[in-house]
Design a binder for these strands. Sequence first.
DNA 1: AAAAAAC
Length: 557
Amino acid sequence: MEAFQLLSRGGARFDKKRFQKDVSLFSKKPAKSGPVEKLLDGELPGELDYFKYAAGGSGKRKADSEGTAKALKKRKVEEEEEDQDMEEEEEADDTPSRPRQRVVTKGSNIPSHADTFHELVERYQLSSLLLSNLTTYGYTQPTGIQSYGIPILLQSRDLAAISPTGTGKTLSYLLPIMSSLGAPSSSANSDAGSGVRAIVIAPTRELAHQIHNECLKLAQGRKWRIVLFSKATAGTLADKATRDKVDIIISTPLRLVASLRSGGVELNNVRHLILDEADRMLDSEFFPQVEEILAACSHPNLQKAVFSATLPAGAEKMAMQMLKDPIRVVVGLKDTPLPLISQSLTYVADDPSKLPSLLTYLAQPYNPPVLIFTSSQPRATSLAQELVLNGVSNVDCLHAGMTKKEREDAVSRMRKGESWVMVSTEVMARGMDFKGIREVINYDFPTSVQSYVHRIGRTGRAGREGKAVTYFTDDDAPFLKAIANVLLQSGSTVPEWILKLPKPSKLKRRQMGKVKRAEIVNPARKVGRSDAIKKRDMVAGSKRRVVRETNTNIMAE
DNA sequence: AAAAAAC
């Protein structure tokens, strides 16, 4: 472990030079690439190109344009069938600099959207200080979710907001909260009551921390007390007088519940409750905690809002039951990544073949920083170690099994651009906004469509381009098709044979789901490309039956 | 459908 840390720090200088050279190489001929890169970019080697074995196939990977069109058409029909009395659809965001995003709103008496932040000054008395803070931090024009969501929240309505990753959801709820807070709780403010008035809940510490930072930026120049809840901060709020001066709390659910139980915080004055990453907060692990928080927010004028890029039907139902006369805003297509992210699927046969493939990939010019997702903490640790031992420089690791300090350090290195390769678990999948991330690699296959969408959403943020590569093995076959449909829907290409895979039975899924993955081991420590990709029967059991799917499962939930 | 994350 020590050796690992030493190695991951050392060698940086040498490799920085190499990296700079690589970048210039890369920018000279961006599209042209050697056979290896092509292979790793989602293309199957000739002998493994199952596309050509598929009925009616014509050789190489190509866009299944017919499938895409069909998928989109089906999707459109589904949306239209939701025909409810108050539904509106319009093209938002007419600025030529940004792609148009379709916005669908549903609910009663929907406030009209705001095309500029300045509009909010007249309509909702947004303070000039908040407006100037927006300008200071480069928020010039509201995104789709901001222009629709902010007026809704400013009119004290409950909101379910679904907008793709990296489209500015955080600001959409922070700005209205701050606008309605008015004077700080500590001052003589007759409306304020006593005690915390707004709460934001997020599923990981890192995300809560990031939201807190955003909040502080926006609040500059005002004396609001904005507290990021942790063991330490909870301690300082021991006496009620101090507690009553707090305006906003940002916390993970369990931390807040713990304080609630110990009497360290009271939520009876909370006017705004935000669930970020709502589908995650409503899943079976978190929901009991959220319920407890909800029950403690006893103020009659409690406004509730949920935000996410994904909201499966079950979670949406729960959310709608929780909200009062809610307005639902969907930007783009639900559960779909941004089209700016170019996605590909890479076949790697089996688990032992992954590491050689990744090493080959990282030995070539690539765009750092790269974020790599694994399925478990031990696998994240051992992959990071393997990478370091194989000479990859500036490797970092981040998972929830690490200490708070280790996690904080890893994030800060990431923010400073010091880590080029970050190996992580699902903890990094949601909400984290590292602006520089150019590439996401799903080393282990994501276990749900939602996980996939959030993971790859770490790149391509705020209008930037991004790239996402997903490794899959024979064991991942049961879940391959659902993910392939996501690629299709967001405009990426998928080999046709994958689309022709039958939907696996529940039993099969369960059996294959039980396949345990060991830690990453590389006995030889030097493996050539021929070993990296083994010739193998693809997706045993499913290629035999190529069934024409009548029910194209677009939204696998 | 399943691991990770939350204290």
